[in-house]
Nucleic acid binder design. Structure first.
Lengths: 408, 408
DNA sequence: AGTGTTTGTTTCGCTATCCAACATATTATG
DNA sequence: CATAATATGTTGGATAGCGAAACAAACACT
């Protein structure tokens, strides 16, 4: 037998890292900005016209994007074709909560194509949540196989999640501990699965597609039935920390001799500021942030105002800390924290101006989250898109024989 | 007149960004790790043997590094030459404080070559500090010109500094407001000058050369006469924020109805934890952290222990917040905070284990700063090295005719 | 209709990398 | 002490990817 003179490793030819980077750059730009002309892309990337042409050509071949006729906008010079992301490149999103598991399908470009909320009678266990998600995904299977290229599944969990291995370290409100949800759902569905903290993903979602679009430094706070979650984007990158647990702003110290928190400390923001008392004052048993806001505006009273003011006071303390530490451009509030902000507009901003330091607080603005109930889907999908966005060609080539129309 | 057919822009030929990146990568590795063999460099960079060979060759030509005989360590195979940073590539460091201005010269590799402390009778104004620094630098001029390639000057200021334009927004303890120190010193010396917050630079220094070496997520806190400064490194990058004001951990809220702070808020860490009461209890009027520690150990008493415990308690609150938010691997304490930590070893760690959340606090360890009085010099120099490290060849070519031994 | 402007397209050359073969310096082995 | 094994520096050639320039196309303006 003749030994092959030179061993042909893995792929036919790995692309240069430079090419990979540029493809990734273009793909991310199109994904996050939605619609850009080729001329705009050359300006944004700083690459040469001809290079962008070649790169876009490759992305068109890979069916990542398509070019459409120039927009009608009157401009001197030859019109530049518009580059659109193909929503058939998609990611699945899963968000377990205490009363439901929501499954979504999000296309490249960040549009939610499909969202299925599965209400549960009881708080789902990790196993139940995975089973529900797997079943719903199985139901969509034929459609997915026929019309989409699914890049993976992202799971947004309200709790501490180790992003590297997808293990839920502790989700107090779900009662989960050390659950390897990413592996579990991966085995159940066959898709690559990743998990992360819900608020961190929310921060990324609002940064890319919502109230924080175009910014670089953002603090996101979500208030829900299961407490207050936080996510922080610094210099365009989500803060992850050593194990991916970063961002727990809900457990900022805001009160001496405050109540004990389930986290083991006392005086946490989450124990002083919660939506249950607001629901009581509003006179409704439950509902979403919109319901709460309406009810509170209807039942306006001194008691309500006082409670809103009290909660904003504590929120202000946590936020001034965060502003001093991060010097952000934007603070984005979701859930009942967004309601608090909306009920007393300007209050938080004036608290920050008076209490935070001059420099760090200069430029900060407070926003209400813009993506509503789509946020978790978009954020979780971003997690699943991550690998694809960092190497589009490679990720598609590694796809389990989706549509391979070339001879090997 | 004949118009030149093709306009020759700037440099003779700009190198490919890829080459620039690789040169920068190698230079940073050698600078931060000090001594590495060529074989180690190929492994660390992932580049090809021959490529690293060519790159090192260029760096040797540029006199950025030199190769020395292989270390005596017995290894199978051909020995690999050791690559050393040339300390003649240097940066100047300036650190104004309330009672002195310190000027230093730091070589590539992070070794402090020279340090001159200029004591002042009064708190220096910005103008005075700049004059002092300029005069001292002028004194070293001939030596600098003869034996060094100075890449610039870094100024470490205890206060809010806009890193982009080098303007000190507010340095409360120095009494400075809106002082463009970088521009001022730049005009006085002719060197490119940059300024940043002292604690941020301290964080970078300890990360690269001190107690946090090799880590990716680190919180640095320095306690001095002018309060408590903080710097945060997340994912290997110093947190800067929108304007470079990030890191103000000294103004973390730690106490309800606490004393008012000069920053405008109440209950800040800096008002509850300060070194003045410790100096009183120690029975000495002043001195550095070492003096304080010795005196406190000599004068040990219940009163001292109680005060140390009280201060650690508040420090613990600020740190648990920070740990919950950042999920760091290391906390590095300098100045009197390092003394507090050393006097009651394990106290902070146990506070963190009990009060911070399980996940984020898992891996965190508390250290005392390792670089002592060199820290500010090293950190500030790093600021001045930054541009050189990101484009060694370009920075040297742009140097004002240092040693140009080729014909143009 | 002509002119100027902007942008896509094509061709070509250059740069930086990787690969493979060879050379070299050391330890291990008999 | 000689030979083998191993790791690494060195050299020459091949390739990929980008930028520059010249050309072509499509628009607005007059």
């Amino acid at each position: 037998m003749m030994p092959s003179p030179t061993r042909n490793t893995v792929a036919i030819s790995e692309p240069d890292p430079s090419r990979r980077n540029n493809l990734a750059l273009l793909t991310s730009l199109v994904h996050h900005n939605g619609v850009l002309s080729r001329a705009q892309l050359t300006k944004r990337t700083g690459l040469n016209r001809s290079t962008v042409g070649a790169l876009i050509g490759q992305l068109v071949n890979l069916e990542v994007v398509y070019e459409a006729a120039p927009s009608g906008e009157a401009q001197v010079g030859r019109p530049s074709p518009i580059v659109h992301p193909r929503p058939s490149i998609a990611a699945l999103a899963v968000n377990p909560e205490i009363d439901a598991v929501t499954i979504g399908l999000v296309g490249l470009g960040g549009k939610v194509q499909k969202k299925i909320r599965f209400d549960t009678e009881r708080i789902p266990t990790a196993k139940e949540a995975v089973n529900i998600a797997a079943a719903v995904i199985e139901g969509m299977r034929s459609e997915l196989d026929a019309s989409y290229q699914v890049m993976g599944v992202g799971i947004a969990v309200p709790g501490l999640v180790n992003r590297d291995d997808g293990v839920v370290r502790h989700a107090p409100h779900l009662g989960w501990r050390d659950e390897p949800v990413a592996r579990m759902l991966g085995e159940a569905t066959g898709y690559p699965c990743h998990a992360a903290n819900d608020a961190s993903l929310g921060a990324e979602g609002e940064l890319l597609f919502g109230a924080g679009a175009g910014q670089k430094n953002l603090i996101f706070l979500n208030g829900g039935a299961s407490g207050i979650g936080g996510g922080i984007v610094a210099d365009g990158e989500l803060l992850r920390g050593t194990s991916g647990y970063a961002g727990e702003l809900g457990h900022t110290f805001v009160r001496s001799s405050g109540k004990p928190c389930h986290c083991g400390a006392t005086g946490c923001l989450e124990t002083e500021v919660s939506q249950s008392s607001l629901f009581e004052l509003a006179g409704i048993g439950g509902g979403d942030a919109g319901d709460l806001e309406q009810a509170l505006r209807r039942n306006s009273s001194e008691t309500v105002d006082a409670e809103v003011a009290r909660q904003l006071e504590f929120l202000g303390i946590a936020l001034r800390n965060a502003v001093n530490i991060f010097n952000p451009e934007a603070i984005v509030l979701d859930g009942f924290l967004g309601v608090l902000h909306a009920l007393s507009p300007g209050k938080l901003d004036s608290l920050l101006r008076s209490q935070a330091m001059d420099g760090p607080a200069d430029q900060v603005k407070t926003y209400r989250a813009a993506l509503g109930s789509d946020l978790m889907m978009i954020g979780a999908a971003e997690l699943a898109f991550a690998q694809f966005l960092s190497d589009p060609a490679g990720a598609l080539a590694a796809l389990p024989m989706g549509k391979v129309d070339y001879v090997r």
